[in-house]
Amino acid sequence: MASIAVALSKDLPNGRVMRAIVSEQDLVVWRSKSGILSAWENRCPHRGMRLSHGFVRGEALACMYHGWHYDKSATCRYIPAHPELEPPETIRAQEFSSIEKGGLIWVSVDGSLEEPLIDENLTPLRSINFQCASKTVQEVITKSTKLAGDTDPFNFTTKAAGYHHWVLFSEKKELNLHLFFHELPNNACKIHALIDKDCPAQIQKQISRMMESWRRSAETDYEVSAK
């Protein structure tokens, strides 16, 4: 199932940590102070705390609970309660492959990280969450592009519709909008959206609001469901 885009690169600056989920696999994705990207199982080998609650300490990720430090190879290197101890090499978090390309962070959880084919000159827009399956969102997009007439500021047409990657094209604005679908558990998904050239902030806002309008249509059954 190859590589899945989990975030826009700009939303994970150096020294920051985030959580991501790919095919039910809970992940911590983090970037060291010098910029090295890692994606691991979101579970501290010590007591199982979510590592996504942790802090970046230079080139290491420190667990929030007891502060164990893991280096870029996911190996535990420092245990604050035993500062003199050199931790055994066997204490490691489970690593997954990750790569950065075209302004996106890609993760593979099945060991098959392929170089994603993507234009390197895209401008990141935003990641937006939907409480419905990506199929539902795709149906809404198809319908709304069909309905959009000449008065629509973009009048997008669907140029490519792969499983995870859609490209909408606006002839009016000569603009490609790239949508990367990221399926989540419990009937939810995200879109990581990018545009293919520097476009004015005003247009970015319009597209951002258009995505919210898709969401309002797609989530008609987003009822309160505190499980």
């Binding site: 690169s9 700009k10 939303d11 994970l12 600056p13 150096n14 970037r31 060291s32 102070k33 010098s34 910029g35 090295i36 990207l37 802090f55 300490r57 230079g58 080139e59 290491a60 420190a62 502060g67 430090h69 280096d71 870029k72 290197r77 420092y78 604050p80 950065e100």
Partner: peptide
């Protein structure tokens, strides 16, 4: 908040600068 404890475990200068601000 945690006592700053930074060890240089090899900061791979060649690593892509990423999206540093």
């Amino acid at each position: 908040e945690l006592k700053d404890h930074e060890i240089d475990y090899g900061s791979q200068k060649s690593a892509k600068a990423g999206a540093s601000k």
